[in-house]
Design a protein around this nucleic acid. Sequence first.
DNA 1: TAAATATTCCAACGATTGATAGATTGAAAT
DNA 2: ATTTCAATCTATCAATCGTTGGAATATTTA
Lengths: 217, 217
Amino acid sequence: MKDARKIKDLLYEQVARIGKVFSSPKRLELIELLCQGEKTVEALANEASISVKLTSAHLRELRMAQLVETERQGKNIYYRLANKSVADLWVQVHTLAEDRLVDLQLALQRIADQPDDLIANDRDSLMKAARKGEVVVIDVRPSEEYLNAHLPFARSIPIDELRQRLSELPKDRAIVAYCRGPYCLMAVDAVTLLKKEGYSAIHLREGVAEWDAAQKI
Amino acid sequence: MKDARKIKDLLYEQVARIGKVFSSPKRLELIELLCQGEKTVEALANEASISVKLTSAHLRELRMAQLVETERQGKNIYYRLANKSVADLWVQVHTLAEDRLVDLQLALQRIADQPDDLIANDRDSLMKAARKGEVVVIDVRPSEEYLNAHLPFARSIPIDELRQRLSELPKDRAIVAYCRGPYCLMAVDAVTLLKKEGYSAIHLREGVAEWDAAQKI
DNA sequence: TAAATATTCCAACGATTGATAGATTGAAAT
DNA sequence: ATTTCAATCTATCAATCGTTGGAATATTTA
């Protein structure tokens, strides 16, 4: 059976097509953005700070690996993840990275002012507190992303509007802010602003994708 | 905040270090082998049909991504996965690949003679049947791999010894054979042999890694 | 101490990839 | 029908990767 080798090579090659998608930083960023809901090429390019052309090229890779679907709506072409398990895989990849790579751990620690992990470990108690109204959970992503999906009991206050809408928030309870995930800095900024204004604010590292992936394990 | 961009780039770059490991067919094969237990460089090279040098180079990538650990035992250096979640990630990557890539589905169907999936869907009933002795589950991998970990109720009959040890197996019950996973052809060969010899044999696509990963979801 | 074995390091080759610029498609608006 | 706009395709260059061969390292064995 000499061709057993050929068959195996073919199989692993196919799987590597998926792995390849997750091997480029910019593609990872695009995947994380797509975890927040469908987006146009231009929107993705802006968010990821790369040219539309390059974005299109990366999205082509995603399309060829069958990980995204496209749909034309008027002038624009919207991309979305083909499957929820793509988001789950993204979460598992970055979780493993955070687990194994010291450099990444250090970089993440430098971003957020420490003790915000007490919550990530403890989803149930956060939900209980949110349900009872003991804490206020705010989603600081753009409102379209909130509408697409959000954590239970979360209120939408996009980071751009936060300063003007501070009066909506109570000062006697903790404000928990989250955004797209651990690599999105919007929640960090929100917490910084809130603290400066005298609120007791907590940064939740997880986004909707991380939350969902954690729920089902 | 211009350097928000720099921070993000750094973070995604780190995660891509993990993704990159899963982007090469040969590295994937090495990971699957390491899922079966610790192995020397030479053993890995033989199993993957590549030179020791190339194996060493690929293992270097794995080491730099902190996904494997090494230990010297006498003359040899043994590699093992640094963490169970590396095996889980491998399972999730190849599962997503099988889910999305038609080419891969077709290739897998061509290997096995169809209706062996009835079991994969149905782990509990297989276990019940195995517990009651209604079916005989055999692990056709090398015995070291069996010793490292195996499915409950499984008996070790390495593929090389199967022909001589046929008398150990009953003809009045179904024999379920499994090996390293869906890309390993040992169980397929075992089933082919058993059927030719008049046994009723069933191929279980999953290996220990797949089984474990499925259990905890 | 020398020889044998297992593995890694180093240098080099062609193949592939990420990124950029220019030309092209294809739907929508005038 | 023509213009406009979003997105893709093509060509290109430098950088990186997979692979191979030769030299080097470290450990065991004689």
